[in-house]
Write a protein that binds this DNA or RNA. Structure first.
Lengths: 243, 243
DNA sequence: CGTGCTGTTGAGAAGACTCAAACAGGGTGG
DNA sequence: CCACCCTGTTTGAGTCTTCTCAACAGCACG
């Protein structure tokens, strides 16, 4: 990891994700606050390779984190090595909204692909909060989105079969991607290994492989070359049992 | 349901739960704010019988809710009738911390026992927030606790066997109860039916019955007369695989 | 050309589910 | 006081889903 405070704001201003809720509020805030003479929120960058753990459970941090580039996952680790992914982190998402308010998480975060991320000083954030209701609103929104995603995954793990889980996972990732990008004929980026999918869906890699094979044979979707193409959206939604 | 704004504050002042994070902040706030001449946060009471749905998914509400008496559950309902409990709500807990910020939830809430609850005006809350950093802190805390509970349940559903799930569920309920009450030899209140447990743990009632039987036969715990007694804490923790 | 990682396939076992029936307890009405 | 009903729990038998273990193929990399 390395950081580069001086150029952080400049980089964000030209970032394609500057419309994501928290990023937008931070940027607006840093311009509007100059007029209010409040200190700006200090930021710096970090990066990591695929598979690196970038935040360790219960590690106290001065900063909150926002993912800029790549995919990451927040996960819980069991004493015996089992691992459950709690949330999938895509560019523009905070590692967890909790880190905006609280110095540590009870879960860890690891990079699934090479990543770059933004560190945001929590104490600066706290000060800025007093002067900027819009920023507070943005943090609430991020927090709500995170909780809603948890609820959705909770329903999947508690009630759905493996086929439903994977269909829903894919559709949800597609929705999240589509909310920020145009989805082309050729599909969208999908860098997850079967192991990563298994960690999210609470299945084994072997079973993930089998289920994805049935999807492939049924002409529902195809994963290749790090991209996922949905060939039969209707069919996939039918399998996912989502209204 | 009925409400009684006039006596709400008086009732809260003498409530045994007035130390729970949000309740405490609201009460402190209503006294400290009088000196700051900010309007108090209006509250009223509601109540319901066991099995009643007390908040419907996506219903817009002017108020946030805090459970005073009884047990409730927030749950997601599938189009085909399947149901997953997302969080167990005990006295002192908000239905969801999200309702402090946002007018609606994507999940419903139902009473598991007869309940009484407090309605807190969100707009009043919002105004009070500006004047009271402690209140903001309390809402963050409630939100964090809710997310942490989600994470824990997520790990259970994704990675644990039925025995582990039930052992963990029981231990977690015990911890929550113990944090606010003294746990006696005779155990603690446990009004859940097997169906309620199944909804939380993502199992069927039949299987819950079987697993609880093995716990009983192994001398780990006993449920009877609406109370749960842990007979072998060490053994139960071993089954739960929590370090 | 070996080595390690990822994905695929097969066979068998274990866990949890479904369906069905019986049982226990509390409340109600005769 | 008893018969009945309703709800919730228990038990049995059989099935299906998912896991485990093991082997192998493909590919990237040194």
């Amino acid at each position: 990891m390395h950081s580069d405070p001086a150029t952080a704001n400049a980089a964000c201003t030209s970032c394609a994700l500057r419309d994501s809720p928290v990023c937008a509020a931070l940027l607006n805030q840093s311009t509007s606050l100059q007029t209010r003479k409040a200190p700006p929120v200090r930021r710096s960058f970090g990066g990591a390779d695929a598979r690196e753990t970038i935040y360790f459970q219960d590690e106290a941090s001065e900063d909150a984190f926002i993912l800029c580039v790549g995919w990451a996952a927040r996960f819980a680790q069991f004493p015996d090595g089992r691992r459950q992914t709690l949330s999938l982190i895509l560019p523009g998402d905070p590692f967890s909204a909790r880190l905006f308010f609280t110095p540590a998480l009870h879960s860890s975060v690891r990079a699934l692909t090479p990543v770059r991320f933004n560190r945001v000083s929590r104490s600066d954030l706290k000060q800025a909060l007093a002067a900027s209701p819009e920023l507070l609103e943005a943090l609430f929104k991020a927090s709500t989105m995170e909780s809603d995603a948890s609820d959705a995954l909770l329903s999947d793990l508690g009630q759905c079969t493996s086929e439903e889980r994977l269909a829903r996972l894919v559709l949800r990732i597609r929705d999240r991607y589509a909310s920020r990008h145009v989805v082309r004929e050729s599909g969208f980026p999908f860098p997850l290994r079967h192991q990563d999918i298994a960690d999210i869906a609470g299945l084994t890699t072997v079973h993930v492989s089998r289920v994805l094979k049935t999807f492939r044979l049924a002409g529902l979707m195809e994963i290749s070359g790090g991209a996922l193409t949905i060939k039969d959206m209707k069919g996939l939604e039918r399998v996912a049992h989502r209204k």
